[in-house]
Computed example of a mutant assay.
Amino acid sequence: MGHTESKDELAPETKPEVKEEESLNGVLRELRALQTQPTNHLIADRSCVLENAFSYFKSGKSELSPLEVSMVTSGYSEHAKEQGGPMREFFSLFFKEVLRKDIDMFEGQDHGQQLFPVNNARAIENHWFHALGKAIVVSTMSGGPGFPYLAPIVVQYLRGLECEHDLNISMVQNMLLRQLIKRINNAADGDQLQDAVDSDVERYIDNCGWPRPNMITISNRLELTQYLLKWEILSKRFAALEQLKHGLNTLQFLDKTRDLHEVEKILQAENGDHATAEYLKESLTKEIGRLNPRSERETNAKDFTLKCLPANKRHSEAVSLFHFITGMSSLPVNGIPLEVEFNRVDPSSELPQAITCIQRLRIPLGNETAIAFYSSFHKALTHGQYGFGRSERS
């Protein structure tokens, strides 16, 4: 994958200890120093985040300016001071929007994980993949979420690493092609192999680059399989992959991080919901444990909150709570500090509140019973995701 020094290049006793995370942080600091233009203020309407984002990131040199975001809902501006919360939510919403099936930019499996870019003419002609790549870089530079949805083979390609030896049939999204590959490789003799080739009514073999004069035989069918896999997984997506790669190399991000495995966390699908859920539970348990109740009501609220934390297997609830507190749907590459406090400002309030710009959860003190408390959390997570300065968020 990345460059590994041999024993001849560096003796073990002289090999420097370089922490990848520190190296990645160093690159991000270097890139932020390049943002020398005046701050851009983007007004993003929740009903058209996709259009707002594409328009902004398709504009020239937008990456050279720090970005502040104001969110608008149903024509009303959300009154939130920009300290990172609105911007992070803007990127989270945008990244989720590009995964919509009707946008048709990606296909894959596991409910949005292990994705492959689609060779969509509309997206390519409108430079959507390039704009997305640039947005991922700007979000990462700004402490926002990454785009951890791509198949590992795609990330290898984008980073300029050798990947053809890792191609396999499990990556094939087209079920007809997958069946054809299996028939070709399961053929017991030349007649069965010819039947398999003749069944290729979609003409995959003609399109994959296989030299037409070459006879397909038992001895070279594995070579044919490699042609089919490379075409399906990489070659037919070339335009989309290259455009995304160009966008991700904004400010030479890919070039500067080529040998840093930590960058995979930004792009590669590795059960991101699980990682977010584990981080949330660990961080909140620690912060809630530090609270010093001043009354029986606060003691009860502290205990109720600990019992409210989503169970290990309920990742979707944990992601919802993480989004409620931070405005992000996934954990950024370097983590993010979470804070907890009792709502002593408005002790009669029954709903939890979140100050997303500083990632702080306010525990309500207005509930008389455990059931009322649990219901208040459920209500907040269900209805409190619509904006800053609206309902119980700020």
Rank of each mutant, 00 (worst) to 15 (best):
K7R: 09
D8I: 14
E9S: 09
L10N: 10
A11E: 12
E13C: 07
E17Q: 10
K19H: 13
E20C: 02
L28A: 08
Q35Y: 11
T36Y: 07
T36Q: 12
A44D: 01
C48F: 09
V49G: 01
E51R: 09
N52V: 05
F54I: 15
S55V: 09
Y56E: 12
F57T: 07
G60T: 14
K61A: 10
S62D: 13
Y76Q: 13
A80D: 12
Q83C: 05
R88N: 06
G108V: 01
H111F: 11
H111I: 07
Q114D: 13
F116H: 11
P117A: 06
P117I: 05
R122F: 10
A123T: 04
H127P: 00
F129C: 10
L132W: 04
A135I: 04
I136K: 11
F147Y: 15
A151N: 15
I153H: 11
Y157F: 14
Y157G: 04
Y157H: 14
Y157R: 15
R159D: 09
G160A: 06
E162C: 03
C163Y: 14
H165C: 08
L167V: 06
I169Y: 06
M171I: 05
I184Y: 08
N185R: 12
Q194P: 01
A196N: 02
D198R: 06
S199M: 08
V201W: 12
N207F: 09
P211E: 10
P211S: 06
I218W: 00
L222K: 09
E223I: 08
L229Y: 12
K230W: 02
E232Q: 14
E232G: 04
K236N: 06
N249K: 07
T250D: 04
F253K: 01
D255L: 02
K256E: 08
R258K: 13
E264K: 15
L267T: 03
Q268E: 15
N271F: 08
H274D: 13
K281V: 14
L291V: 00
R297S: 08
E298N: 01
N300G: 01
L306Q: 10
C308A: 15
E317C: 02
L321G: 01
M328G: 03
S330Y: 12
N334H: 13
I336H: 03
I336C: 11
F342Q: 00
R344V: 00
R344Q: 02
C357Y: 01
I363E: 01
G366A: 03
G366M: 03
N367R: 02
I371V: 05
H378C: 13
L381I: 05
G384L: 00
Y386F: 09
Y386P: 00
